[in-house]
């Protein structure tokens, strides 16, 4: 399992298309594949938002992501950071950022390799053999 992460309009999809050798040709936008299927999953935050709008509880949403992530198959997750702004007043907007952030934390914990994209420039933040600096920093 691999993650390509960064802010909106930073060139994440372009990076995946041009730099990663894709075994799977299934590319999903705002949708999840069935567990066990290989795919590139983009727009997870939009999928999460749709679930929340349909009043699906957070536990269910995270459970669905977990079930998929733990199943067989190779997946690349393209994750858009939506959590660095002001905490919104609107409850749905707030919940959306919360559930998205918690899903990302789960996925980050389980991914073998994470690349952050900053305006087209990639940086490996997990899985480059240096045992992720993030974890080193935990002390």
């Amino acid at each position: 399992m691999r993650i390509v992460f960064g802010g909106a309009f930073n060139g994440k999809r372009k990076y995946v298309k041009e730099q990663l050798k894709l075994d799977s040709s299934v590319w999903l936008e705002g949708e999840l594949p069935a567990p066990g299927e290989s795919a590139v999953i983009a727009g997870l935050e939009q999928w999460i938002r749709k679930q929340l709008e349909q009043q699906r509880p957070e536990q269910d949403i995270i459970a669905a992501i977990r079930e998929l992530a733990e199943s067989a198959g190779e997946r690349i997750w393209i994750l858009t950071d939506i959590g660095r702004g002001i905490v919104p007043i609107d409850p749905l907007e707030r919940e959306w950022r919360d559930v998205t952030g918690r899903s990302y934390q789960y996925l980050f914990g389980n991914a073998e390799h994470i690349t952050r994209i900053w305006y087209g420039i990639p940086q490996t933040i997990k899985g480059d053999g240096r045992d992720e600096y993030l974890h080193e920093n935990r002390g």
């Binding site: 802010g7 309009f9 930073n10 950071d81 939506i82 959590g83 660095r84 702004g85 305006y119």
Partner: peptide, 21 residues
């Protein structure tokens, strides 16, 4: 850096991302 939170204005964000890249 204003592309790490969803804003209402998609056009603005898209242009900014393009210029930054």
């Amino acid at each position: 850096e204003v592309l790490d939170e969803p804003l209402v204005d998609d056009t603005y964000q898209e242009w900014l991302g393009k210029i930054h890249q």
